[in-house]
């Protein structure tokens, strides 16, 4: 497995590959996955993944179906805990506290980590209430503050201009692309430390996809984003770092520009050039 980690703005080779980075480098990290394995019952889906997530950068997870990328993403907000028989070993450490989120209360984890899914899933509520939902769970009651945070989240999701005059209307009245941006606004409103995007544009048309990609580019300096995508051009366009996974293993991790132009591993090269399978 080839892996590179972050040292301020520079990228250096990590050796040995499974060791955590030196303490001095953690300031540039939002999280670090250490020897993470995961089982759906008896089936092992992740095999000792070690990966650094850069702070306020976009990290893309790519790989063929069944490689474990969505499983890895969902580990971040403890979604697997909803089903019996699933189990983890290893750590996902959130910085700066260096807390292993596998051991934290899932409810507290989800307050810190937002997630957007493949298909838009707005609540059967108004546009405003959809975005305000996470803030209300956080205990925000001040109307002015609530209103300001909802507006900011809708602006971050590039949706404000389209919905500002109909905030009280049902979210179901929005188009598919608008609903997905609403879901992103809903995830951004509580100011998550990490935003997880699980194939967020796979159900959208090219124009709606472009709008979502644009907003990810706009928020990349303020939020740490991890995105799972089957669209390699999308990963190449919007991410700073890319991890290639295969059969539950991390095969290669590098700055996106390097991984897509000069991959170091044959498996990565075969996949990104379309020679896979």
């Amino acid at each position: 497995m080839t892996q590179k980690i972050f040292h301020d703005q520079h990228v250096t080779q990590l050796s040995p590959k499974t060791e955590p980075p030196p303490h001095a480098q953690r300031e540039s990290l939002a999280a670090e996955i250490r020897k993470l394995s995961f089982w759906y019952g008896e089936t092992q889906a992740l095999k000792e993944i070690t990966l650094s997530i850069a702070y306020r950068k976009v990290t893309a997870l790519i790989g063929p179906s069944g490689c474990g990328k969505s499983t890895l993403l969902r580990s971040f907000n403890r979604m697997h805990d909803l089903y019996a028989g699933n189990r983890y070993s290893g750590e996902i450490c959130l910085f700066p506290e260096n807390h292993n989120l596998i051991e934290l209360d899932p409810f507290m984890v989800r307050l810190r980590i937002g997630m957007v899914f493949q298909k838009p899933n707005p609540f059967p509520k108004s546009i405003f209430e959809n975005v305000a939902a996470g803030l209300r769970i956080q205990g925000v009651q001040n109307k002015k503050l609530l209103s300001d945070r909802v507006e900011q989240a809708l602006r971050d999701a590039a949706l404000w201009e389209e919905v500002k005059d109909r905030l009280s209307q049902s979210a179901y009245g929005l188009s598919g692309g608008q609903q997905q941006r609403l879901c992103i606004a809903r995830a951004l409103a509580p100011q998550p430390e990490i935003l997880l995007l699980d194939e967020p544009t796979s159900a959208l048309d090219p124009i709606a996809t472009a709008k979502v990609e644009d907003l990810i580019t706009d928020i990349r300096n303020r939020f740490t984003v991890i995105i799972v995508t089957h669209n390699m051009q999308q990963a190449a366009r919007i991410s700073d770092f890319t991890a290639y996974m295969h059969l539950g293993k991390l095969i290669e991790f590098a700055p996106t520009g390097e991984l897509f132009t000069t991959p170091q591993e044959t498996l990565t090269r075969d996949y990104i050039t379309g020679r896979f399978g």
Binding site: M232, Q233, T261, T262, P263, R269, I272, T273, G274
Partner: peptide, 9 residues
């Protein structure tokens, strides 16, 4: 084609 890596080169 969505050329990558050695194909793109």
């Amino acid at each position: 084609q969505q050329a990558m890596a050695d194909d793109l080169r």
